[in-house]
């Protein structure tokens, strides 16, 4: 029993120390999520909040990926289906579906994602710029290497820009 506690304490200690090491470099904190079987991430500081899907109202004459508008505590915000925006079929809402509200200045938009994965800390040096010819919209900020996975980091400013 004692051994177990000791091990746990050690682990905690390690966890507490680890970030400090990271902080010295330019570390970016990201929130990762799944859209269409791929993992994406956005900087945690650009996230206003993450909520469970709520009812929305369709807005006519918008592209299909704009699902409509919803009410976030008195503010009317647009709701965008990220999967559909990326050229895949629309997201099927289930228990894992979330809405990430991203902000850039005064602009706020809700994005439907399939599932949250994890919070990620990554050094700036581990982020490769977006591959050449990865779309004219500049939606991709870069590709991050975490462990042995590759995570696409999205450009929030570009995401929040109206493109229709």
């Amino acid at each position: 029993m004692n051994e177990k506690i000791e091990k746990l304490l050690k682990q905690q200690k390690q966890q507490m120390e680890e970030p400090r090491v990271d902080d010295m470099d330019d570390v970016i904190q990201l929130v990762g999520f799944i859209v269409g079987e791929e993992e994406f991430a956005v900087p945690i500081l650009s996230i206003k909040e993450i909520i469970k899907p709520i009812e929305y109202t369709r807005v006519p004459k918008t592209p299909s990926y704009v699902l409509g508008v919803f009410n976030m505590r008195g503010t009317v915000l647009p709701l965008v289906d990220l999967k559909n925006k990326f050229g895949m079929p629309k997201t099927k809402f289930d228990d894992d579906t979330r809405v990430i509200v991203l902000k850039d200045g005064d602009e706020q938009v809700g994005f439907v994602i399939e599932e949250l994965s994890e919070a990620i800390r990554i050094k700036e040096s581990n982020i490769e710029p977006a591959p050449e010819g990865s779309g004219k919209d500049n939606l991709i900020y870069g590709v991050g290497k975490v462990d042995d996975r590759l995570i696409t980091i999205l450009n929030v400013k570009a995401l929040l820009k109206r493109d229709f």
Partner: peptide, 10 residues
Amino acid sequence: KSLGNYIKGI
């Protein structure tokens, strides 16, 4: 209420 910059002007 305004619809915000993203979808205003529909």
